[in-house]
Design a protein around this nucleic acid. Structure first.
Length: 648
RNA sequence: GCUGACGUAGCUCAGGGGCAGAGCGCUUCCUUGGUAAGGAAGAGGUCGGGAGUUCAAAUCUCCUCGUUAGCUCCA
């Protein structure tokens, strides 16, 4: 007897050999037609797999509407794609083909001199749909290890053989559908006909097992849906996302640019972009003042010895911009790739008492890193950027409370700019490979537990990632996705016991003895470049009023009102409102339309009426006429809006 | 750095061995207007750069630089 319990707690009995699909049929034919798989005691099973007899099984039937079954359909689609590719490229050797957050991919090795390009996508998609319509079932087979090895030796597929090495005999399953058989632990959808719409998205190289020392395979990404309409919706969503791309908006709004003559990955800030950047800096300066930070300034280069001392030379020296040499002596200087060593030396410049601590040095430090060319991406990954950096030197006792204060700053920044969808990631050491790091086991343990405790105490939801720590210490990173769903690290807070040791930093304690401070590295924005990139995508260029480069455009009805308009412009500028006049000989309609498209929050219309009453007419973007008012009232209106944006 | 794709006007893009194109933007002129597109004319290009094939190359081939999607990396 098979005993099951459905989510609504009803219990049912079925004879031996019953599958989840049979259970669905017993409920309704309609449900049975839509069942993709079943969750049995929390584990996902094929719908046509025979249920085990004996103990009571918690059974939940999964249809497309269950989030969990999306990856099921996508994983099965990867198999279907493999079958289609096998048809056109019989020599292809398949490796792994998982479902991912949005869709699926398959990594494969092609015959030499053959490659798949996006030109092949259409025929592969067509073949996939043709195969899908054959309603081929996904058949699960339990295979002995010996048999499996024989199968892939015969296919000369060393990748699958490598995967088999790590599998236990008795634990190996193959799945086959139509003409394609694959080593796979499943589960799968019942048959291919559930896949009704397919789109291959891109082809790229990917290293076997993610290691660049290994072979580079061909990876093909795709997505599929049970309905054509859903695919269309997804594709238009992608289109919309592309419109938010900061590279596009940055160009349209004239915020920043790049020049090949200047060099790859070296952004040039245009006047409008600089306004936003300077506003962000002002905002952060004010915030830091409140939290007791002191500003410091350090040069753009540093002696090689500085980085030998910090350990950065050892770790990154070869891959950095190469040293600048002095003409007379043999001294070598590096462009600074981070500010911490400079700040350590500032700390050392005078003796410190425990009464001085915490010491908080802040600097908007511009740093240069030689990023691999393939890594460069708009403003999110560049070779020259400015960090809103600070280093806090604390005693053991101060560490946790100070760390929590920094968390407050980061959370405040995210809140002011309305970032709700972020991940707080605790980046710890790689458990396997500890050679990547400097410092003692004890220091690392202390630093890691400090972060874990502080976040627990602050009750923020965190995700632990091993192997993501900096080489000198663990981090709390705030990750935000861009328009295309790629994750970027913005704010970061790091606990560091190692650099104070390397720089022999000390303070005199109440016991009149020397003690070693602990260092907190922190940057709430991360880098201004990356932060602004994400902010552009987040707002689609509709920045809050306090940040937007052009707050107001004045539109005179005709040339007769130019003089009065200039007077108003001057008045607004005295109020520190960012305004300009649109004196083109276009119609009012046209100039309002352009201001709307250019995302200008306020338009001021000036004509006969305004001149006579010494006033202005205000229009808010996306809204109607706000009516007639004096400049002073308008200023109050705007100031109120800005302070509302900043008080959260 | 690796693999694939792409570089045509300021921007977005069409063309694809035989005269360099469109829309938007820009300039000038006309229009002097009341809350999302007034009209006309004009300027603007070594078709990323170099080499080759050809009577002829923006177009085909190779190299190179850059951009881009991934992979790898990210102090």
């Amino acid at each position: 007897m098979v005993l099951i319990q459905l989510p609504d707690k009803t219990k049912k009995e079925f004879p031996k050999g019953t599958t989840s699909l049979d259970v669905a049929k017993s409920i309704s034919e309609g449900l049975a037609r839509n069942v993709l798989a079943a969750e049995i005691n929390g584990e996902i099973w094929d719908a046509d797999r025979e249920l085990l007899e004996g103990e009571l099984l918690n059974l939940k039937l999964l249809t497309w509407n269950d989030e969990k079954s999306k990856s099921l359909l996508w994983h099965s689609s990867a198999h279907l794609m493999a079958e289609a590719i096998q048809f056109f490229f019989p020599e292809a050797k398949f490796t792994i083909g998982p479902a991912i957050e949005n869709g699926f991919y398959y990594d494969l090795e092609l015959q030499e001199n053959k490659n798949i390009s996006s030109d092949d996508f259409e025929k592969i998609e067509k073949k996939m749909l043709e195969l899908a319509s054959q309603k081929n079932t996904f058949n699960r087979m339990e295979i002995s290890k010996e048999e499996a090895i024989k199968y892939y030796k015969n296919k000369k597929n060393k990748y699958k053989l490598e995967l088999l090495e790590n599998l236990e005999d008795g634990d190996i399953t193959f799945y086959s559908q139509g003409n394609f058989t694959d080593l796979c632990k499943g589960p799968h959808i019942p048959n291919t006909s559930f896949i009704k719409a397919v789109k291959l998205l891109n082809v790229a190289g990917a290293y076997w097992k993610g290691d660049e020392k290994n072979e580079q395979l061909t990876r093909i990404y795709g997505i599929s849906f049970p309905k054509r309409k859903e695919l269309n919706e997804y594709m238009s969503l992608l289109e919309e996302a592309k419109k938010r791309d900061h590279r596009r908006i940055g160009k349209e709004m004239g915020l920043f640019t790049f020049s090949n003559k200047v060099g790859q990955g070296l952004p040039l800030w245009l006047p409008k972009g600089t306004v936003i950047r300077e506003e962000l800096i002002k905002f952060m300066r004010d915030l830091q003042k409140k939290y007791g930070y002191e500003s410091v300034i350090s040069p753009h280069i540093g002696n090689k010895d500085l980085y030998i001392c910090s350990g950065h030379y050892d770790k990154y020296g070869e891959d950095s911009f190469q040293p600048i040499k002095t003409p007379s002596s043999k001294e070598e200087f590096f462009l600074k790739p981070m500010n911490c060593p400079h700040h350590c030396e500032i700390f050392k410049s005078s003796p410190k008492s425990y009464k001085d601590l915490p010491v908080r040095y802040a600097e908007f430090g511009t740093v240069y890193r030689y990023e691999q060319s393939g890594e460069l991406h708009g403003l999110t990954r560049v070779r020259g950027f400015t960090q809103d950096d600070a280093h806090i030197f604390v005693t053991e006792e101060q560490l946790e409370s100070e760390f929590k204060k920094v968390i407050d700053i980061v959370l405040y920044v995210l809140k002011v700019l309305n970032f709700k969808d972020y991940t707080a990631q605790i980046s710890l050491r790689d458990k396997e490979d500890k050679n990547k790091y400097i410092g003692s086991e004890k220091n690392w343990d202390l630093a890691e537990s400090a972060i874990i405790n502080a976040t627990k105490n602050k009750k923020i939801a965190t995700k632990i990632e091993y192997g993501e720590a900096a080489f000198y210490g663990p981090k709390l990173d705030f990750m935000i996705k861009d328009a295309l769903g790629r994750k970027w690290q913005l704010g970061t807070i790091q606990v560091d016991y190692n650099l104070p040791e390397r720089f022999e930093l000390e303070y005199i304690g109440p016991d009149n003895k020397y003690h070693r401070p602990i260092m907190i590295h922190r940057a709430p924005f991360g880098s201004l470049e990356r932060f602004l990139a994400i902010l552009i995508e987040h707002t689609a260029g509709n920045f809050p009023l306090w940040l937007i480069p052009e707050q107001v455009v004045i539109i005179p009805i005709s040339e007769k009102f130019t003089e009065y308009s200039n007077k108003i412009l001057k008045l607004l500028k005295n109020y520190e409102i960012r305004a300009r006049i649109d004196i083109r000989s276009e119609t009012i309609g046209k100039r309002i339309r352009d201001a709307e498209i250019n995302k200008i929050p306020y338009m001021i219309i000036i004509g006969e009426k305004e001149l006579e009453s010494n006033s202005i007419s205000v229009r808010k973007r996306g809204k109607e006429d706000l009516g007639n008012m004096t400049c002073e009232i308008f200023y109050n209106y705007i100031s109120k809006e800005i302070s509302k944006e900043l008080e959260v």
